[in-house]
Simulated scan of single mutants.
Amino acid sequence: MFTGIIEVLGKVVEITKEKENLHLTIESNITPELKIDQSVAHNGVCLTVVNINKNQYTVTAIKETIDKTNVGELVVDDFVNLERAMKLGDRLDGHIVQGHVDETALCTKIKDDNGSTIFSFSYTSDKNNVTIEKGSITINGVSLTVVNSFKNEFSVAIIPYTKEHTTFSQLKVGNKVNLEFDVIGKYVQRLMSN
Score class of each variant (00 low, 15 high):
T48W: 13
I26V: 14
V50Y: 08
R91G: 06
I26L: 11
N128W: 04
V50W: 10
K54F: 11
E133V: 14
R91Q: 13
N51W: 08
D67H: 12
K54R: 11
I137Q: 00
I137H: 00
V40E: 02
L88V: 10
E27M: 08
I139H: 00
D77G: 02
G72P: 06
N51F: 14
T138W: 05
F121A: 11
D112S: 14
N51I: 10
K68N: 15
A85N: 10
D93H: 13
T16Y: 08
G99E: 06
K127L: 15
T145K: 05
A61F: 06
L74W: 01
V146F: 11
Q98V: 05
I96W: 13
N81R: 02
C107K: 08
I137S: 01
V142D: 01
G72C: 05
T108Q: 15
D93I: 13
S149F: 01
S149G: 04
F154S: 11
N55T: 07
V146C: 01
N51R: 14
A105V: 07
T60H: 01
V59N: 14
E73M: 15
N70R: 08
A105I: 07
V142S: 12
G99R: 04
T138H: 02
N129D: 07
H100G: 05
E20Y: 12
I62V: 15
T69Q: 03
G89F: 11
N129M: 10
V147P: 02
C46G: 06
E153G: 00
S122W: 03
T117A: 04
F121Y: 14
S122T: 11
M86C: 05
M86L: 06
K151P: 07
V50I: 13
I118R: 08
N53S: 15
G135H: 08
N140M: 01
I30E: 14
A61E: 00
K127A: 09
T145V: 06
Y57I: 01
T117N: 04
N114G: 03
E153Y: 09
V40L: 03
R91F: 12
G94T: 10
H100T: 04
V71M: 06
M86N: 07
I66M: 07
S116R: 03
S28T: 05
N55M: 05
N51M: 12
K19A: 12
N140I: 02
S136I: 06
D77S: 08
I26A: 04
E18G: 12
Q98E: 05
L88H: 03
R84Q: 09
G115L: 00
T145D: 03
I15R: 12
T104F: 09
I30A: 05
A157G: 12
L144G: 00
L74K: 00
S149N: 12
K35L: 07
F79R: 09
V40R: 02
E83H: 06
T124M: 04
E153P: 01
I15F: 13
D102M: 10
N53M: 13
D126Q: 07
T25A: 12
T138S: 14
I62N: 10
F154P: 03
D78A: 07
K68S: 13
V146A: 07
T58C: 13
E20S: 14
L88Q: 03
N114Y: 02
S28L: 02
T58N: 10
G44H: 04
C107G: 10
